[in-house]
């Protein structure tokens, strides 16, 4: 895993966000307030690299999250000095600061109006369009948010991030088949992303477990396929193996009644012996990962502690069932 400062901020836990926010004042002090474009002056100032601006953005988000608004404004100011207030991305960040400082719905409404005013001038301004969609979701207007996002995807159909957001929005509404469609679109854009394959597997598994629409067996077959692809793309991928074990357990314990109807559908389940082999492989790998992580093996420390704990709990849970 990369250092905390460079990781995408939304994936951090609260404790990690606090850790990042605490580094902000020191980072601001260490780095110069502005970089000169003159070649003579740049000889005497530290070199500017692209990572610095990613870090500023992450610090800004972390400070907003922890409520340290003065430091957040300092970070934003540096970004504005470097890129100018008219830059689309910077404008979106400015809007983000306003959103974070808004205390009631009325103020959020005002920010939304500002976004709409910007979009009325230039409706291809992607960062602002994304902020508007996110703000609609924040305000609880999920239906409007989905509508706006679908409109956005009409002209920016290669934006994988937006497709995933759409899948997440649909999923929050329990619309599984739409969520699966959106997630598949994201996979078309990034076919090698092993985490997206695992995510699609998880959505399919959720759809199978809810059992509200479609054939659950069909969803399980799709889910099995996706998890297999994710571990094919990445050795030792905890999330993929965990999902694979969940799916194969479910398939092996499930009733065989529904199996007959699945033959005509697009995904056919593999033989039971193959599923058993996959289950065994997943159990073995999960055991390896948990053991190596617990033993503090130096090359196995990249996993998320929570994910390892979940795998450990699930493994002990299923092994107890086998003993009984």
């Amino acid at each position: 895993m990369p250092p905390l400062l460079l990781q995408p901020h939304a994936s951090l836990s609260h404790a990690e966000a606090l850790q990042v926010a605490q580094q902000a004042p020191e980072f601001l002090r260490k780095n110069p307030a502005s970089y000169s474009a003159s070649p003579l002056l740049s000889l005497f100032s530290p070199p500017e690299n692209s990572k610095i601006w990613t870090i500023y953005e992450n610090l800004l988000l972390a400070c907003l999250r922890t409520g340290d608004n003065t430091t957040a404004h300092q970070c934003l100011e540096r970004l504005v000095v470097r890129f100018g207030a008219s830059d689309e991305r910077i404008a979106a960040l400015e809007g983000l600061v306003k959103e974070a400082e808004a205390t009631n719905n009325g103020e959020l409404e005002k920010v939304l109006k500002e976004y709409e005013a910007i979009l009325a001038e230039d409706n291809t301004n992607t960062p602002i369009a994304k902020r508007r969609i996110a703000l609609l979701r924040t305000m609880g207007k999920t239906a409007e948010s989905i509508e706006a996002l679908v409109q956005y995807l009409d002209f920016a159909s290669t934006d994988a991030e937006a497709w995933i957001e759409l899948a997440d929005l649909y999923l929050s509404q329990g619309l599984y088949s739409q969520a699966i469609y959106a997630q598949e679109e994201a996979l078309v854009i990034a076919p090698n992303a092993w985490n997206l394959h695992a995510r699609l597997g998880e959505i399919l598994l959720m759809a199978a477990e809810s059992g509200s629409e479609g054939n659950p067996q069909n969803y399980l077959a799709g889910s099995l396929k996706r998890f297999c692809r994710s571990i094919e793309l990445s050795d030792d991928y905890l999330r993929g193996y965990y999902g694979l074990k969940r799916v194969t357990d479910k398939l092996l314990n499930g009733d065989s009644k529904a199996k007959k109807s699945s033959e005509s559908d697009e995904f056919t389940l593999p033989e039971t012996s193959t599923i058993e082999k996959l289950n065994l492989a997943a159990t073995k790998k999960l055991g390896d990962i948990v053991r190596n992580y617990d033993a503090k093996a130096p090359l196995w420390q990249g996993y998320d502690a929570g994910e390892v704990a979940a795998a450990r709990a699930y493994l002990s849970n299923t092994s107890q069932k086998v003993v009984r």
Binding site: P8, A10, S11, L64, A92, A100, L108, A134, I164, A186
Partner: peptide, 17 residues
């Protein structure tokens, strides 16, 4: 690809805070 799943463009800062 983790940035794709984190979706920084759609970050919900109000809820996170």
């Amino acid at each position: 690809f983790s940035a794709l799943e984190a979706r920084s463009g759609f970050i919900n800062i109000h809820k996170l805070h």
